[in-house]
């Protein structure tokens, strides 16, 4: 059957985890079922909806498109690693402020996709955000407040970046 378990090691949200998995285990299932990180959701079975998007080695990836074994040795960030209540990531803060979520099911994936987008384009226009979120589906919001949230997050992140640089320069 080829179902003999294999060892994998991943660094997830900063913690190293080793596990034995069936070779066919999807990364999305591994994250949820083996690691108990249920913030990453699954909304389809054809890799269209993007609810399961996480960062793998810094890239936004739909975790249902990878087998766990393919992620062996990778660094993974899920929504739980993005930020916590009391210490929210600008993306989380912006989704809250701008009402970028309703049921909240697609939200972790959408936020991770948006984080990936801002890494490539820190100052996107509305249109670029809409294009950049091609890989995710939200059924609740009609996307408008998601666009607002991502734009707001981009601004917050640019400001923080500027502050960090300023502090860095002062130190020099």
């Amino acid at each position: 059957m080829g179902n003999e378990k294999v060892n994998v090691t991943v660094k997830i949200n900063g913690n190293e985890k080793r596990a034995e998995v069936e070779p066919r285990t999807l990364l999305a299932h591994f994250i949820r079922d083996n690691l108990g990180l249920t913030g990453t959701h699954i909304g389809c079975d054809t890799s269209q909806c993007g609810a399961c998007t996480v960062l793998v080695d810094g890239q936004a990836v739909k975790s249902c498109t990878l087998l766990t074994v393919q992620a062996d040795g990778s660094e993974i960030t899920t929504v739980e690693g993005l930020g916590q209540v009391g210490n929210l990531h600008p993306m989380q803060q912006s989704f809250w402020e701008k009402h970028g979520l309703q049921c909240g099911y697609c939200t972790p994936g959408v936020m991770m996709a948006a984080v990936g987008l801002l890494q490539q384009n820190p100052n996107p226009s509305d249109e670029e955000i809409r294009e950049g979120l091609e890989g995710v589906i939200c059924r609740c919001t009609g996307y408008q407040f998601i666009v607002d949230a991502v734009k707001h997050a981009a601004q917050l992140m640019r400001e923080t970046e500027a502050e960090v640089q300023l502090v860095g320069e002062e130190r020099l």
């Binding site: 990180l37 249920t38 913030g39 990453t40 899920t78 929504v79 739980e80 993005l82 930020g83 916590q84 209540v85 929210l88 989380q92 989704f95 809250w96 979520l101 909240g104 099911y105 939200t107 972790p108 936020m111």
Partner: peptide
Amino acid sequence: EDPKLITGHG
């Protein structure tokens, strides 16, 4: 509703 939903605690 949002703090739990944006941090994966739904």
